[in-house]
C-alpha cells in the first residue's frame, strides 16, 4: 500500500494543493510534482546544500524534509527570488562576480545567501562563510561566492526597495498572489 495525502502549501507566493506520496521528500515534490527543477538533487544526505529552499523563513535541505511535512508551510525556491523578471540583488551580484561556474550548486547557494541576509543584513566575511558552509561547490568558486554575498549586502542599502521585497519573500508565511513567478508557467495546474 502506498500512503499519500493532500497537502496545502504556499510556494513562491502561490497557494498550492497537491497530493503527495508519504515517502517522497520535499525535493521530490518540488521537482516532480510542481515542476520546479531549479532546486537541485545531489548528495541526498544533507551535506551539499544543492537542494536548499527556504521554509517558513528558515533554510532547509529539502532532501531531508518529507513532502507531507511541508503541509501548511510557505516555501521560497530559487524560482521565487526574481520579482517581475527583475533579479534579486544577490542574483545580480552572483552574476557580477562570476560566482556561477558550472552553476549546479548556485540555486542552493542563492537560497542560503538569501536566508543569511534576511537574518543578518550586513554580515562579516566569517558570518558569510558559516552561513554558506552547508553549500558545497565542486568548482570551488567559494571566493567569488563569498564576494557576491558581501557585495549584495553592501548593495542592499542602495537598493533597499528591491531587497525589501526579497526579504518579505523569504520571511513571511504568506504573500498573496504572485502569479507572475516562473513556477506559475512551469508547474502543472
Amino acid at each position: 500500500m502506498t500512503d499519500s495525502r493532500r497537502i496545502e502549501l504556499t510556494v513562491n507566493g502561490r497557494s498550492r494543493s497537491i497530493e503527495v506520496l508519504a515517502h517522497h521528500t520535499l525535493l521530490d515534490v518540488l521537482r516532480e510534482d510542481l515542476g520546479l527543477t531549479g532546486t537541485k538533487e545531489c548528495c541526498l544526505v544533507g551535506e551539499c546544500g544543492a537542494c536548499t529552499v527556504i521554509m517558513d523563513g528558515n533554510s532547509v535541505d529539502s532532501c531531508l524534509v518529507l513532502g507531507v511535512e511541508a503541509d501548511g508551510s510557505a516555501l521560497t525556491t530559487v524560482e521565487g527570488l526574481a520579482v517581475d523578471g527583475k533579479l534579486s540583488p544577490v542574483q545580480r551580484s552572483f552574476l557580477e562576480t562570476g560566482a556561477a561556474q558550472c552553476g549546479f550548486c548556485i540555486p542552493g547557494q542563492l537560497m542560503s545567501a538569501h536566508a543569511l541576509l534576511a537574518d543578518v543584513p550586513h554580515p562579516t566575511r566569517s558570518q558569510v562563510e558559516e552561513g554558506l558552509a552547508g553549500n558545497l561547490c565542486r568548482c570551488a568558486g567559494y571566493e567569488q561566492i563569498i564576494e557576491a554575498v558581501l557585495m549584495a549586502a553592501g548593495a542592499s542599502d542602495e537598493d533597499a526597495a528591491a531587497n525589501g521585497e526579497v526579504r518579505r519573500a523569504t520571511r513571511l508565511p504568506a504573500m498573496g498572489d504572485r502569479s507572475a513567478t516562473p513556477d506559475a508557467e512551469l508547474a502543472p495546474q
Binding site: 544533507g46 536548499t52 533554510s59 532547509v60 535541505d61 524534509v65 558552509a133 553549500n135
Partner: peptide, 9 residues
C-alpha cells in the same frame, strides 16, 4: 552540528 540548514531542522 551540521550546517545552518541542518540546525534549522
Amino acid at each position: 552540528v551540521g550546517s545552518v540548514q541542518i540546525r534549522n531542522r
